[in-house]
């Protein structure tokens, strides 16, 4: 196999491994817009790495994590509704990132890579980082899984049961930030949320338990990554969009195969 293809498939598969369970939590907790805001801030992280000469992955993770903490803080303080707050932060982060990148533009950085993802940009170092961080993210999610599911159902019930809700929510945001930093080169800033949401939504049509939904989301994510990267190689497409289009096709297929399990309550 082509080494380039191998690297891309390996890194992509590692990403799908944790976007599955993370995406489920994002979908359950209605945090899709939140994920978007974190992803958009990643571009600012790239700009930051140019200025400070930090490694891009680290700078992205730091920026996303700072934004996550800022959002948690503002959410408890601000009078604005969540979606308004996110609408401001999310797009401001994207715009700030683009402005900063343009100001500091150097020939060595093609920022389109960060917007849409490019497998040509994936090196062995990225594969190694993805596997280490992927292992960390999946391990922590598995360890706290039951508590995370309970928080998704009702935070107050979890709190009364003695679950450290605030700390777990912070942990979840940080894991999301790490995931974004890892995924940015393959999927791109603009489409990471799709990689979180679409496989999870597809799995919702097929799964009967939270754990099953997470495993299915992972499997669907893997299929989307393989299909997408294959298509990207074949027809010279940008990787991120190719992966997301594949995920979308799988989603449509699932909606044709199955009605979702009952989502309405008797009235």
């Amino acid at each position: 196999m082509d080494e380039l293809l191998l690297k891309a498939v390996l890194a992509g598969s590692l990403i799908a491994l944790f976007t599955g369970p993370l995406g489920c939590l994002v979908v359950w907790r209605r945090l899709a817009f939140f994920g978007d805001a974190l992803a958009h801030s990643a571009l600012l992280g790239v700009a930051l790495s140019l200025v400070t000469e930090l490694p891009p992955g680290l700078a992205v993770a730091l920026t996303a994590a700072s934004l996550a903490i800022l959002l948690l803080y503002l959410r408890s303080r601000s009078k604005l509704a969540d979606d308004t707050l996110l609408g401001i932060l999310s797009h401001s982060a994207l715009a700030l990132g683009l402005v900063t990148l343009t100001l500091f533009e150097s020939s060595s950085v093609n920022w389109m890579v960060y917007l849409f993802g490019d497998i040509l940009a994936v090196g062995w170092g990225d594969v190694l980082t993805a596997s280490l961080l992927g292992l960390l993210v999946v391990g922590l999610l598995a360890w706290f899984w039951q508590s995370l599911v309970l928080i998704s159902i009702d935070r107050d019930l979890a709190r009364v049961d003695g679950v450290a809700v605030d700390r777990l929510e912070l942990l979840f945001m940080l894991l999301l930030a790490v995931a974004i930093a890892v995924a940015i080169k393959i999927i791109g800033v603009l489409l990471i949320t799709a990689m979180l949401v679409i496989p999870a939504a597809t799995a919702r049509y097929l799964a009967h338990s939270p754990g099953q939904m997470a495993r299915m989301a992972t499997a669907i994510g893997l299929a989307a990554v393989w299909g997408g990267i294959g298509a990207a190689f074949q027809w010279d497409l940008p990787t991120g969009p190719a992966i997301v289009v594949t995920a979308l096709l799988l989603f449509l297929l699932a909606t044709l195969v199955r009605r979702p399990t009952p989502r309405t309550t008797p009235t």
């Binding site: 359950w28 009702d154 009364v160 338990s209």
Partner: peptide, 26 residues
């Protein structure tokens, strides 16, 4: 040890879980 029944519970529609599994969580 405290048990709490909230006045209302807004269940996430996207989370597939049976009553039994919910009961056994944690």
């Amino acid at each position: 040890v405290t048990g709490y029944l909230p006045q209302r519970l807004t269940l996430p529609m996207n989370l597939p879980i049976t009553a039994g599994e919910f009961l056994r969580l944690g």
